Simulated scan of single mutants.
Amino acid sequence: MTRGHFDDGALLAARLLLAGLFLGGAVQKAVDPAPAMALLAMRGMPEFLVWPALAFNALAGTALVLGVWTRPVALALAGYAAFTSIFHFQPADPWQMTIFVKNWAIAGGLLALAVAGAGRLAWRGGR
């Protein structure tokens, strides 16, 4: 079965929208790492983990934009989104609980992308 133009366009849009979240997160961590560091400290984790998280967000987001290694990157990002939801599990704070639920929804979208792949509108490295 071949994919149609809509499918390829939808996969490109999915990649770009999801990548925007992670690229924005990388920029946010670079510009003002204190809030992310506070969330890490609140859960008893070392604050320096903000830097590998920034790198992972930036590299994985870029991979999604380009459509390279889409399946493994989307799978890794799904795990990352699920894991990072623990920082937002704060039942007394409705805003944090909204972010908690959104992280799981994002993980679901990333799992779907891991199944579907990049589509035809992806960088092919000269192919």
Rank of each mutant, 00 (worst) to 15 (best):
M1E: 10
A81I: 11
F100Y: 15
A78P: 10
R3D: 10
E47Y: 06
F6E: 01
V65P: 11
V50K: 03
L39W: 08
R15F: 01
A30Q: 08
A81M: 05
K29C: 13
L49I: 06
T70R: 09
F83M: 12
W123F: 14
G20R: 09
A26E: 00
A107F: 02
R15A: 00
F89D: 14
G25H: 08
L39F: 11
E47K: 12
V50Q: 02
G119F: 03
D93T: 05
W95M: 07
G20L: 11
L113C: 00
V65T: 13
F100L: 08
F48E: 07
L66P: 03
A38M: 11
G126R: 10
Q96Y: 03
L17A: 13
P72N: 06
L23Q: 08
I99V: 12
A38Q: 12
V50H: 05
D93K: 08
L54K: 07
W51V: 11
D7V: 04
Q90M: 04
A36C: 10
V65Y: 05
L64P: 06
P46H: 02
A122G: 06
W51Y: 05
D8R: 06
N103S: 07
A122L: 11
A105T: 14
A34T: 14
A19K: 04
F22N: 06
A76K: 07
A122S: 15
L18I: 12
T2S: 11
S85F: 06
G125I: 10
V27C: 09
R15Y: 02
L11C: 07
G119P: 06
T2Y: 00
A30W: 04
A38W: 01
A53F: 04
R120N: 10
D93M: 07
G126C: 08
T2V: 13
A105N: 14
P46V: 02
V101C: 08
G20I: 08
A74T: 01
G4N: 12
V101M: 12
L77Q: 07
L39D: 13
L16H: 00
G20N: 13
A19T: 02
F56L: 15
L66A: 13
L113V: 00
M1V: 04
V50R: 03
P35A: 09
F87V: 10
A74M: 04
V73T: 07
A118K: 00
L21V: 09
A36G: 14
T84S: 03
A122E: 08
R3W: 02
V27L: 15
A13P: 13
F22Q: 10
